[in-house]
Design a protein around this nucleic acid. Structure first.
Lengths: 214, 214
DNA sequence: AATAAAAGACCGAGCGCTCGTTCAATACTG
DNA sequence: CAGTATTGAACGAGCGCTCGGTCTTTTATT
């Protein structure tokens, strides 16, 4: 179930003119990579399909053989980012055995991911709004999946190893808080980077989350 | 100092062709109101200057007498939203006397503001990216001002009334956390509204912030 | 008070341009 | 040669913004 590193870029989800599915997977990977860089640098609207084509080493025409619209490409980008974050979080969780110290470690690794992928996280925040409704829903579901990893982990700890028992709603919300406080390092970095190192940030937020502050 | 409900819409900041400053203030107020509604409904890019003019009851030409570009108008919108939030938070803080229970009350009122202004908060997240660098900085400063209200309040409580002493960095970060956890009710409402009432959310998050969970 | 003149506010057709997308022509490959 | 992949010029809808002009209000003049 976990650990597939799903590279489902061929999905009928997003249509293509090209017959050879392997070619599609390979080229799309390439297109997505180029596009992410451009989107981060210039934003969605100021990145033109021509720029994307050029950066990926294609003509506009070819680009449109592999991707049916700019919006669809945007969806592929969002999906790829989510997959990357999700994989990283799953890795972090895989060697966590449910102690309070382990939770701290998971948070530490997650925040590390948020730091490394700060640009991508910011991009997701900026760009989800431009997805067609159909894709937008999917993206939110993916976002929820990541948060749920924390929720599940917390639920697993609840009541064990001097961990307090938390009802479902509380667990759920704490999961979201962890998720968002990680992202905050990305979307408020204009302030954070000026005032904290990542380690400082992690340390204080961990205390905060574990309720050691007050 | 506080309580001016500053309506500084005449500021030389954003240029205009119209001579009568009172007229400018009045009309801009009106234009901004119409624009906010449109931006919330359709986003920045899909809202055309024609739509804005029509909604405000002007011709495009007149619109451009009061506002020198769509980007400047966007800045005015952001500023107006921040002013509204800031005023509301200041009100909430004005009758807080520095007890733990009072902090809870401030949080409650702030979250209420976030709920009422959820659309606006979301809009700010979506739209800041389109501001010219010059305005973007200002907007971030305004955002910081609001967070600082919490930081100041916390700093004032630190050490008094069975409140723990917190160093500057911790106080600063907790202020940001309060600010962001309020906004989270807005930008994750697709999940939150499905699973919590505002009261539930407030109650759990207050516990979380005050560290009563673990 | 009547009239002229100047200023200020308002108008909207249209300019110049960008951008996503298409498609007829061309090249490649087995 | 058939099937597939690639190309990039051309398209046309849509956009922000301008500008020559009109309408309204205020001021000046007789």
């Amino acid at each position: 179930m976990a650990g597939e590193k799903a590279v489902s870029l061929t999905d009928g989800e997003v249509p293509t003119q090209i017959k050879n599915p392997e070619l599609v997977r390979e080229r799309r990977r390439h297109i997505i990579d180029s596009t992410v860089t451009l989107f981060i640098a210039h934003g969605y609207h100021k990145t033109t399909t021509r720029m994307i084509a050029r950066a990926a080493g294609f003509s506009v025409g070819s680009l449109y053989e592999y991707v049916s619209s700019k919006e669809d490409l945007l969806y592929l980008v969002c999906k790829a980012i989510h997959e990357e974050v999700q994989d990283a979080v799953e890795d972090a969780l895989s060697d966590s055995s449910g102690q309070k110290e382990q939770l701290a470690e998971v948070i530490r690794q997650y925040f590390q991911v948020c730091d490394k992928m700060a640009d991508h996280i910011l991009l997701m925040y900026q760009v989800t709004q431009f997805l067609p409704e159909k894709w937008k829903e999917r993206v939110l579901v993916n976002e929820l999946k990541i948060t749920d990893l924390f929720v599940q982990a917390l639920a697993g700890m609840s009541g064990k190893n001097n961990f307090p028992v938390l009802d479902e709603k509380r667990v759920n919300l704490v999961g979201h808080n962890i998720s968002v406080l990680g992202q905050m390092w990305a979307f408020r970095r204009w302030h954070m980077k000026k005032n904290f190192t990542l380690d400082q940030y992690t340390s204080i937020q961990t205390d905060f989350i574990l309720g050691l502050l007050f």
